[in-house]
Amino acid sequence: MSLILKNLGRKVNHSWIIHKLNLKVDKGECLALLGPSGCGKSSTLRLIAGLDKPDEGSILIGGEDVTNISPVKRKVGMVFQSYALFPHLSVAANLSLGLKVRGVSEVEQKKRVFAILELMKLEKFAIRLPAQLSGGQRQRVALARALLRDPLIYLLDEPMSNLDAQLREDLRPEIRTLILGGNKPVIYVTHDQHEAMAMANKIAILNEGVLEQVGTPKELYENPSSLFVAKFIGRPQINIIEERKEELKCIRPEDIKFKSNGLRAKLEYKEWLGSEQLILFKTSKGSIKMLCKGSDEIPEDAYIGWAQDKEHYFNKKTGYRVNKLLKY
């Protein structure tokens, strides 16, 4: 069972919001669709779910073309960003509504809802209304509903963007074991690179509806195929040290080191972040960010440099990578 997107495209007001998108997600694999807002990642998810129709290309689930099949028959388990829980129904009723409309018998409904409530540790909240739950509990109900659907694929649309940072971290392992352990393709939409790297085996970076790069988080970090990917993955953002006519030379802040015979740098400011600190140096080649240990002493005047094999080169006009793949 795998999900394949072939040449997928969608037009809104005569312009492509998704164009020529090709992706493959195997069973048990979690693909994160990552990109800035408006890059088409949620639209892609809606196309896969069948909520919107593509203007081009096709969608295959388990080898079967589902492009023109209704959303119900695609059997997708979707978690909405807003959770989309029915506000007038209790948690148990929220979960059983889908079963009811699909004609599952009442006894079976009760059995399955109870089992999922137990699995998600939501038994106590069965008769509560969504408004009486905390954000994290609502999110769990939304997950429970997706699990209960027993879908062929999981679609998660920024499932944790409404939660605070602490709760997000707490929920990550739970989502991973529940959904990623299901041996089904999972698509996870997010604009948070940390979340994408933590959750996904593969990340696809979208930029204005076009796929920039797809690969493991490590591949994307070490060998970004374009300047856009290089800027999007890795915090703090990659340094652009403009040098040659047609190319941009970029070095990640964490690859910058103190070097006695290096570039002369004047300390502009520093952010102490605990285990590490972010330093901004002013040099003859512009401002350069550097990431070093929190315990390091930072002199006002320093000499900095980097290893040659940590240099990334991108074409100035197209933004594509120019130099060979780096080995970290």
């Binding site: 779910a49 069948g50 909520l51 119900v72 979707m78 909405f80 989309a84 029915f86 889908g98 659907r149």
Partner: peptide, 12 residues
């Protein structure tokens, strides 16, 4: 999205 979620669940 309530309607969309319901549609995915198979509601007419």
């Amino acid at each position: 999205d309530l309607y969309e979620a319901f549609r995915l669940e198979g509601g007419t």
